[in-house]
Design a protein around this nucleic acid. Structure first.
Lengths: 213, 213
DNA sequence: CAATTTATGTCAGTCGATGACAGATGACAA
DNA sequence: TTGTCATCTGTCATCGACTGACATAAATTG
């Protein structure tokens, strides 16, 4: 890797760290781009060459996580049912977070604190999650041999995303605590859902005929 | 109601209609506050006395719907299980939309079109839904006799919100089509979830002991 | 009508974000 | 090393969202 690439990476990391620090101490809204840029000793214009917006720098780590979740899902064996594969992918993601070095872990914690204390960033997180949800639906539909527009893949992913988001509710930041909470929620989901609910349904089966009261 | 109140209501409605029209024709980002204000013949400063932001005027109807859903839930009898009550509240809300007069129905359709074609507004919708979700959890927890921090009420509301959001995915705007889609999704949810999954659990029951493979 | 409250317009200003241009710096070949 | 090229960066100008302060106009109240 050339010198140019390394400098860019260092500048990018420095901008993220400076931004997160300022967001934590002075608050997200009260922090200006000029302050972030000054901290890293670049021009405000340069900031926008690295990040599309003020929100972008705060959510860059969150966006990374979404990409990683999708990547982990792709590595799950086809033998796993869709919901199981999603859960395992989530477990892998948390495993990665728990194994991160101190620098990355610190960045992650600061990011979580900032996001959860700023409504605008919570909204942005929802946007990222929703965008990723469409990709997850695509992968789940492929595994089911179904169309992405069908209700079942959408429902499966929707339930999963609900559980995943519920983990991050409130003030859960530590990956270990977060893992515990995820397992509790997955256990609750498992005993709430019928066995085989996320398996492909044979189109010939008559389901609407039997509606037990 | 005095003259002052009526004029304010007229100005507010006019701002919403003008904004939605402009958002539809020129696009949300390309429309400026000045243009909206000029259309209604008020000063741009006055616009911000009615709406906190450009996003606010586009999502004011969505915010109304969220409040209405919460209100409908409050009217459901205590005899209904939490998830059933949520579903019935949603049905009531759609019923209201279907029964709306032409003016309101038109506003609603324009609003839906604009929101679904603008990423920033989709994110804003998510924020509103998430804020309302907390209130829904509070009500569900009360019905369950549980704490709002417990996992079960959060899970129940999360599943419901997933289904409700899945209804609005893609390009479903007409309330009638939307109703059909909701019923399909609720039917799918019903046959995916165990009977009694949303009922209070006796704290003495040993559930973790039996984990059927 | 007089006094009070409230809505509106004007003005100035901050901040986020973008395009255009020029200068600086690393990459690369001769 | 040197010169050329691509890329990064800073400066400047500008737009649009949003806010505070102040004065004016209108409605409410007695």
């Amino acid at each position: 890797m050339g010198l140019r690439e390394r400098k860019k990476q260092r500048t990018r990391d420095a901008l993220i760290d400076a931004a997160l620090d300022l967001f934590l101490t002075r608050g997200y809204e009260a922090t200006t781009i000029d302050q972030i840029a000054a901290e890293v000793e670049v021009s405000p214009r340069t900031f926008f060459r690295y990040f599309a917006s003020k929100e972008d720098v705060a959510l860059s780590l969150t966006a990374d996580e979404q990409r990683m979740l999708l990547a982990e899902l792709a590595t799950r064996p086809e033998s796993e049912s869709p919901f199981t594969a999603l859960c395992q992918a989530m477990r892998s993601l948390l495993q990665i977070l728990r194994e991160a070095d101190e620098t990355e872990a610190g960045r992650y914690l600061r990011c979580q604190k900032v996001v959860h204390s700023t409504p605008a960033l919570l909204a942005g997180t929802m946007r990222l999650v929703k965008e990723n949800e469409r990709k997850l639906v695509g992968e789940v539909a492929r595994r089911l041999g179904a169309d992405p527009c069908d209700l079942q893949p959408q429902f499966i992913v929707a339930v999963f995303v609900s559980v995943a988001l519920a983990c991050f509710d409130e003030r859960t930041q530590d990956p270990a605590v977060l893992t515990r909470r995820l397992e509790d929620l997955l256990a609750l989901a498992e005993r709430s859902l019928c066995p085989g609910w996320d398996l492909p349904v044979r189109s010939g089966a008559a389901e609407s005929a039997s509606t037990p009261g």
